[in-house]
Simulated scan of single mutants.
Amino acid sequence: MTVTPQYQPGPADRTGAPATYVFAVCGADRPARMDPAHGHPGGGPLRFLAVGPLRAVVQDVPAEAFSEAALRERLTDPAELERCARTHHDVVTAAATGGPTVPLPLATLYLGDERAAAALGAEQERFRAALDRIAGRAEWAVKVYLTQPGAGNGNGNGAPGNGAAPSETLPPDAPSGTGQGAGRAYLNRLRGARQQREQCQERALAAAEQVDSAVRELAAGSVRRRPHGPEATGQGRTQVMNAAYLIAEERGGQLARTVGRLRSTPGFDGIEIEVSGPWAPYSFTDGGVHAGHP
């Protein structure tokens, strides 16, 4: 993951004045203060900053610790990146419990409240449109996998299943016997294994389209992303669909029933459907609505 801070260090960094870290933008109908247990260590309490008729969830943080150079160094450490991302997500999630909330990208910083309010205020119409769109709705992630032998049966419980894809390769000593007959048999087995893999992949893609079609009927919006590779999914399964859906809060139970029905559909052996949520709708707010440069 590459993080580009929305922040350009300047002379103000050396004055000792804190930088303003912006987590999200929400409506004006919020309590006076945020939960002080959240936020980046070393920073001040979370608070709201007026942005015209809207409110930004912000925190004062040490400018020297959140400069572009400092962040680039810190966020090359996977553990530090995870900690910062988790803190950012926790604050956004806390803000979203109070109503529609537009998350901003990780490491969105400004040299003071005045610059933050000016930059965010220039985008307030886009923020208002995003808030209207996500009101009463949440994001759900739905992923579909083709499982390998012993990796799962498509119900998400990790139990051995049937109908999974065959092994990618045959053993090195697969040819048996001697002569052209043995070589031809080996090639036929290799060809048959490849055809079976292709059939399994086609079946998984068809299942993914069936899942997408069924969930989109419940959703106000959807986003399909490039599937993750084995470094993210682990060995033993291949991700064939990676999608997010914007679904009304009261339809969460309907989503669960729809996915349950799909999991028991004939032909879904060896297909795993993974659902997570509800989340703050990161995928449906114009990428968090990037708000200019400080």
Rank of each mutant, 00 (worst) to 15 (best):
L120V: 14
G121W: 07
R126A: 13
R126L: 13
R128T: 06
A130K: 02
A130Q: 05
L131V: 03
L131R: 03
L131E: 04
R133A: 03
R133C: 05
A135F: 03
G136C: 11
R137A: 02
A138T: 01
A138M: 02
E139I: 10
W140A: 02
W140N: 07
W140K: 03
A141S: 11
A141Y: 02
V142Q: 05
V142G: 04
K143V: 05
V144A: 02
Y145E: 07
Y145T: 03
Q148T: 08
Q148G: 14
G150V: 01
A151C: 07
G152T: 00
G152I: 00
N153Q: 11
G154S: 00
G154M: 00
N155W: 10
N155L: 15
G156D: 08
A159S: 12
P160K: 11
P160D: 12
G161Y: 07
G163V: 11
P166T: 14
E168R: 15
E168L: 13
L170H: 06
L170N: 13
P171R: 03
P171I: 01
D173M: 08
A174G: 07
P175F: 03
P175S: 12
S176L: 09
G177Y: 09
T178G: 03
T178E: 06
T178F: 05
Q180R: 10
G181K: 12
G181T: 08
G181A: 14
G181W: 05
G183E: 13
G183W: 06
G183D: 08
G183M: 13
G183K: 11
A185E: 12
A185R: 15
Y186M: 07
L187D: 09
N188I: 13
L190Q: 15
R191G: 15
A193C: 04
Q195F: 10
E198Y: 04
Q199H: 09
Q199W: 10
Q199T: 09
C200H: 09
C200N: 09
R203W: 04
L205W: 13
A206P: 00
A206H: 03
A206V: 06
A207R: 07
A207L: 10
A207T: 02
Q210C: 12
Q210E: 12
Q210M: 12
V211C: 11
V211M: 07
V211E: 02
S213V: 14
S213H: 14
V215A: 10
V215Y: 04
R216P: 00
E217N: 15
E217Q: 15
L218C: 10
L218Q: 04
L218W: 04
L218D: 01
A219H: 04
A220H: 01
A220I: 00
V223Y: 10
R225N: 15
P227L: 08
P227D: 07
P227H: 09
G229F: 04
P230K: 13
P230T: 10
E231F: 06
G234I: 05
Q235T: 07
Q235H: 12
G236D: 00
G236L: 03
R237P: 05
T238F: 02
Q239F: 11
Q239T: 09
Q239L: 15
V240M: 05
M241Y: 04
M241D: 08
N242I: 00
A243K: 01
A243H: 01
A243V: 00
A244R: 07
Y245A: 04
Y245K: 05
L246W: 08
I247L: 03
A248G: 00
A248P: 03
E249Y: 01
E250M: 02
R251N: 09
Q254M: 14
Q254D: 15
R257N: 02
R257K: 14
